[in-house]
């Protein structure tokens, strides 16, 4: 059986106490929420924190506030909480959809929203046991010097594989980060760096406490995920799209995000901008899809062939936009995702 390395265990009851612990431990500690990302990484010795700080006793992290003015979602809500809550509809559909297709039912019962947002970047050269990584002399992200995905690269190319972040970015979400020295709020789209190692701007002493959403009244949104099987698999491409339409079907505002196609979720700003003031017809959808797909830079470090993933990006943007327009995409969705 694979065993965890030894660690010190802390279980604070308040956010303040947690912030104090992180402040004291600096980079030696890692917050533990659902554990579904961190514990496998620890078993493979990709991450070996000296201290694990459990967040599950901090009640304020599991609250939900949904109102006319927007929403505040505690970071420790489980993905099952979100996927199964009928309040996450209409404007929030993309988030509920994204949460409902993460991994497996059991993992969704454990994994949290904050954990999925902070998900470690993934790579076929990195998500391997200590022994396997030794046999390639390790990689840039952990213990090595070469990025085997792109040996000439000075940057790690591990892939952002979160489902909820692209969805939340399409919904214009912000995150609240709390540390001993205070707190800050930033757009989720600015949380990530274009770097597989230093992929997130959350400092080691900060806790991602909350996701904040403005009112999405009048918005429609959707999330499309590409993966080999109907469950288990991380996305190898995802497209989240949200739009607000005028009465005659012209796009008043739109946001498109592309996930799992780079070190961070990508905002397809140019495509979204192009759609503003236009109706969603075959021509505009095709143009937006082409423009959006241009930003996807899949590499050979996930499942599926990278050129094919790149090619499918435009298709997925098309599907998402057609769904927002009101087309019945259920047959395509069933074929591609095996989900009803």
């Amino acid at each position: 059986m694979m065993r965890l390395p030894l660690f010190e265990f802390r279980a604070p009851r308040t956010l303040e106490e947690a912030a104090r612990i992180l402040d004291g431990e600096k980079t030696n500690a890692m917050p533990l929420a659902g554990g579904t990302d961190l514990l496998p990484n620890m078993k493979r010795r990709q991450q070996v924190p000296r201290t694990l700080m459990s967040l599950r006793h901090i009640q304020s992290l599991s609250h939900v506030e949904l109102g006319h003015s927007g929403a505040r979602l505690g970071a420790c809500l489980t993905l099952a909480d979100i996927a199964g809550d009928p309040r996450f509809r209409n404007g929030l559909t993309a988030l509920a959809q994204a949460a409902s297709v993460v991994a497996t039912p059991q993992i969704r019962n454990m994994a949290t929203l904050g954990g999925n947002i902070c998900l470690d970047t993934r790579c076929n050269y990195y998500d391997q046991s200590y022994e396997w990584r030794k046999s390639i002399n390790f990689c840039l992200k952990k213990d090595g010097t070469t990025c085997w995905v792109a040996p000439g690269s000075s940057k790690c190319m591990a892939v952002s594989s979160t489902d909820t972040a692209p969805a939340l970015m399409a919904l214009g979400a912000r995150v609240r980060l709390v540390s001993r020295s205070g707190e800050r709020e930033m757009p989720l789209s600015e949380l990530y760096n274009n770097d597989g190692i230093d992929y997130i701007k959350r400092r080691p002493d900060e806790i991602l406490a909350e996701v904040v959403l403005d009112s999405l009244q009048g918005w429609k949104s959707t999330y499309w995920k590409l993966r080999r099987r109907g469950s288990f698999d991380f996305p190898v491409l995802s497209v989240a799209a949200a739009a607000r339409f005028s009465k005659n079907g012209v796009v008043e505002d739109a946001r498109i995000a592309v996930g799992s196609a780079a070190c961070r979720p990508l905002v397809a700003a140019e495509a979204a901008e192009y759609l503003q003031g236009r109706p969603l017809n075959q021509e505009t959808i095709a143009e937006a899809a082409t423009v959006a797909a241009r930003i996807a830079k899949p590499l050979d470090n996930t499942d599926f062939d990278m050129t094919w993933r790149k090619r499918v990006t435009a298709e997925f943007v098309t599907y998402a936009l057609r769904e927002l327009r009101g087309d019945d995409m259920r047959p395509v969705n069933l074929l591609l995702t095996r989900h009803q």
């Binding site: 279980a11 533990l32 659902g34 554990g35 579904t36 514990l39 694990l52 459990s54 599950r56 059991q106």
Partner: peptide
């Protein structure tokens, strides 16, 4: 009452 994966739950929790 919820199905979880016991390989990813710390006994301490």
């Amino acid at each position: 009452g919820k199905a979880v994966l016991s390989c990813l739950v710390l006994a301490l929790e």
